[in-house]
Amino acid sequence: MKLHVFDSCPFCVRVKAVIGLKGIECEISPMVLGEMPTSLEGKLERFSVPVLEETHPETGEISLMVESLDIIRKLDQLHVSPLNQPMFDSYELSEALELRLEQLKPVTAQLLYPRMPKLNLPELATAQALDSFVESRKGVLGQSIEQALEKTELYLPQLEQQLELMEQEIDVEGLISGRRSLTIDDIAAFAELRNFTMIAELTLSENMQAYIEQISARPHIATYPPITR
């Protein structure tokens, strides 16, 4: 199996976390923005990441799967036995987390997109990919990434308020204290929170920082170096 990803894509991180947690043999294949891998050309109705590519061992036939939660369901139920049970009881995010992630989108775009070109991301490894990213973000942000970066202090309180609410809704303390087990909400929340580690000006609560570190360590998914304006 091969998983095609962008490093900064939270949906890709969701799947990578499960692969790491379960110890599944799967090649992680970073993609460059604007460059379609040959094995995927003409085979997707619409291009999105992650893409799980699986080659049948006997026929050589290639099958593709998209949508992070569908991929996670498939991977979590591989080789199920009395000694190897699925990690999750559900593969649907809670309504509370879905709503919180939706409310986070506008402010996180303003804070994250300006920092991504400074991180040497695999998806922005070529000059063409970087130029395309910077130019396309203008329409999303309603301003240049440089202008958004200068307004960090304007957007930061909005992010911090959303994260305070998220911490309570997903019971961060319950996981780090061992009072409850890992859920699909934790995987999705971590995938978003990992990106926030690139914001040097963001101060996370002790519990939220411990939560990120605890989940990050198990599948060995590194967080980002902090980027300041």
Rank of each mutant, 00 (worst) to 15 (best):
residue 172 V to N: 02
residue 178 G to K: 06
residue 175 L to V: 06
residue 24 I to L: 13
residue 202 L to F: 09
residue 216 S to A: 12
residue 98 E to H: 14
residue 102 E to C: 13
residue 150 E to I: 05
residue 185 D to G: 03
residue 124 L to F: 00
residue 195 N to I: 09
residue 213 E to V: 01
residue 56 H to R: 04
residue 116 M to E: 11
residue 193 L to C: 09
residue 224 Y to W: 13
residue 171 D to P: 00
residue 73 R to L: 15
residue 123 E to S: 03
residue 100 R to L: 14
residue 47 F to Y: 14
residue 57 P to G: 11
residue 70 D to Q: 14
residue 19 I to F: 02
residue 55 T to Q: 11
residue 99 L to I: 12
residue 137 R to Q: 05
residue 213 E to W: 08
residue 5 V to M: 06
residue 223 T to H: 03
residue 2 K to D: 05
residue 128 Q to F: 13
residue 229 R to Q: 15
residue 30 P to L: 04
residue 229 R to L: 15
residue 56 H to E: 10
residue 205 S to K: 03
residue 79 H to P: 07
residue 105 K to G: 03
residue 226 P to A: 05
residue 221 I to Q: 04
residue 143 Q to S: 14
residue 80 V to P: 05
residue 82 P to E: 07
residue 100 R to I: 15
residue 78 L to H: 08
residue 141 L to H: 08
residue 212 I to A: 01
residue 19 I to T: 00
residue 37 P to V: 03
residue 228 T to K: 14
residue 30 P to F: 05
residue 93 L to S: 09
residue 57 P to H: 07
residue 144 S to N: 11
residue 134 V to M: 00
residue 92 E to Q: 14
residue 30 P to D: 10
residue 87 M to P: 03
residue 221 I to V: 13
residue 70 D to C: 13
residue 123 E to Q: 05
residue 52 L to H: 03
residue 161 Q to L: 11
residue 4 H to Y: 14
residue 41 E to K: 15
residue 152 T to C: 09
residue 176 I to T: 03
residue 28 I to A: 08
residue 201 E to Q: 07
residue 102 E to K: 15
residue 133 F to W: 02
residue 8 S to E: 12
residue 48 S to T: 10
residue 108 T to F: 01
residue 92 E to S: 12
residue 67 E to Q: 13
residue 137 R to K: 13
residue 46 R to H: 15
residue 13 V to G: 02
residue 35 E to R: 10
residue 13 V to Y: 04
residue 46 R to M: 14
residue 92 E to L: 13
residue 136 S to P: 11
residue 132 S to F: 11
residue 216 S to R: 02
residue 44 L to R: 11
residue 34 G to A: 08
residue 30 P to V: 01
residue 158 Q to I: 13
residue 200 A to K: 14
residue 155 Y to T: 03
residue 33 L to S: 06
residue 182 L to S: 00
residue 24 I to Y: 02
residue 112 L to D: 01
residue 17 A to Y: 06
residue 134 V to H: 00
residue 113 Y to A: 01
residue 51 V to S: 01
residue 80 V to G: 09
residue 104 L to N: 09
residue 138 K to W: 07
residue 22 K to G: 04
residue 116 M to T: 05
residue 22 K to F: 03
residue 87 M to W: 05
residue 133 F to C: 01
residue 23 G to D: 06
residue 212 I to K: 00
residue 227 I to H: 09
residue 48 S to Q: 11
residue 127 A to D: 12
residue 194 R to L: 11
residue 40 L to A: 06
residue 174 G to P: 07
residue 158 Q to S: 14
